[in-house]
Every structure is written in C-alpha cells, then in structure tokens.
Design a binder for these strands. Structure first.
Lengths: 138, 138
DNA sequence: CGAACTTGGATGACGTGTCAACTATTCCGT
DNA sequence: ACGGAATAGTTGACACGTCATCCAAGTTCG
C-alpha cells in the first residue's frame, strides 16, 4: 500500500507541478515559519533528515531557483535557507492538487474508524521501533 | 510508520548481512522458483519493478557475485538470472534475523484485529489507486 | 592565551531509481 | 519472404540517499 500510494502521489506531483515529494516537503517546512527562513540544521531536525541529505537536496533546489542561501551574521559557520518567490509560487501551485490527490487515493476509501485504527497502529509501531532500534533520530 | 520501520529493517539487514532490502527481495524471488533461475522480465513482473531498474540492480548484484546471467537458447534476446552459491548463502544467512526483526518491530505490537484492519485498508487503498492512477503496473 | 573538542555545514564517492533512447530478436500481416 | 511492430533487455543521463570525510567557526579548559 505504501509503495503504491507513494508512487502515485509522487507521479502526480511531478507531472503537475515539476516538484518531487522531497522538494515539496522542504517548501512546506519553509512556508511554515516566520519569514520563510530557517537554519539548515533546524530544517534538518524538523524534517528528520540527515544534514548531508538535506545539504545535497538544497544544492539541487538552489540550482533550480526554489530556495536561496544567506549568510548568518551571528554564527559564522551557519547558513540560512530562504524561500524564493519562485519557490513560493511552486508550492502554492502544487499544494491544492496534492491535498486533493491524498484525499482521492487514500482518505476517500477509509472510514473514520479506519483512520483511528491506523493512527493507533502507527503510534505503537513507531514507538516500538524508536525504543528498540539504535539511533533512530540521527 | 512506514518510513521508520523501513529504515530500521534496512539498517538491520545492511549491518548484519551486507544486503540491501532490494538485494534481499531479488534473492527471495529467485529462491522461490525451480532451479533458482528466472527470465529477467518474469522477475520484473513478479517484483513489480521496472525492467530498467531491475537491469541496473542485477548488474550491481552480478558484480558482487550474488547472481549470474545465462543465455537463453530458445529466445535469442533473453537472459536467465541464476542464483549463485554466494547468493544462496547470503539469503540463508539473512533471512532468519530479518523475519525476527519484522516480528519485533511490527507484529509484536499488533493484535490480530489490527492485522485484519490493516489488510482491509491496504486492499481498498491499493485497489483505489490502481483503478484511478494512470499506468499502475508499467 | 592556545590546544583539544564540538558543531554547522559542504563535499566526494558510490549505491539506488527513473526516464528516454537504443540494440537485437521475434512476431505478424500481407 | 519481408518490412513494420512488438518484445527482451541494456545503457546513459540525471535525481536522490548514505556514509565517511573535511573544513572552518565556535567552545572548553588547562
């Protein structure tokens, strides 16, 4: 189920908005904060992505003009990631039909009991893995 | 949940058996048939993978000695994929602890009602996607 | 102060996934 | 039989993910 739904959503987003799911996630997190500006490591933490992965992805997104980098005055090592106007336009164009697709592919065939059951299952399993597995959040 | 469980299982398999999940899947499908020998396209169909993806992956696995390629006498285009002794050894070493990890991370925290609910949800969602989405199986 | 350590982040190598294009064979209709 | 379509499989380019490594700016502590 996960494979199939994920692939369908990714295809939909790619063909309609020229964004990958990952691009979308980054943009969502950026639009979620004041000034659409975040430190790389905050973003990494919020997305639960490795710093390296994020850094690579941000490079690709910067090359496409979706985001920009700015120096951080208070910490000479740091960098801010900022949403460009193109980035904002892209996510605003993509979001409605994505939400729609999620509803169509997923929630439309679920009852509210299904959703409750899924939430409960998901919480238990996730908690189990994070309790058992080595370094879940690094 | 899917992300977290998938990552945990992948990490477990990689560190204990030097196999990726994808390697493992290929090996499972090979051991499932007579003579551990399959045409590439049958394997692709069985795994629901693109031919291209499979071809790339088989090249990498061949380089590592897990599988081999053989010419097909009845169809000059075709190729058989065969399991090498190394490949068989690898999956036999990996399988038990993988099964164990799946149980630990997943089924241990689920009731049989949970499993029933998940199966039902999964079937409905998958059917919906495959009915709606363009080209699900290509 | 200065050496050791930590932290923020980038980079390079390599494995993986997708798409489009390609080659070589087989099939099929006339 | 032959010329076009379908089929089997590979390849190349490029996006994505992970790991190990690196570097530079900050922090700690003698």
């Amino acid at each position: 189920m996960n494979t199939v739904v994920g692939a369908a959503l990714a295809r939909q987003m790619q063909t309609e908005s020229m964004l990958s799911m990952q691009d979308f996630e980054v943009l969502v997190h950026l639009t979620d904060v004041e000034n659409a500006r975040l430190r790389v490591s905050e973003l990494a933490r919020a997305m639960r992505w490795e710093k390296s992965r994020l850094s690579h992805h941000l490079s690709r997104m910067e090359k496409r003009g979706l985001i920009g980098r700015e120096e951080c005055s208070s910490d000479g090592r740091g960098a801010f990631i900022v949403l460009t106007p193109e980035g904002r336009a892209a996510i605003e164009a993509a979001a409605p039909s994505h939400v729609d697709a999620v509803r169509r592919y997923f929630f439309d065939v679920l009852t509210s009991d299904d959703v409750k059951a899924l939430r409960s299952i998901s919480e238990r399993v996730t908690a189990r893995v994070e309790a058992t597995d080595t370094c879940p959040s690094e």
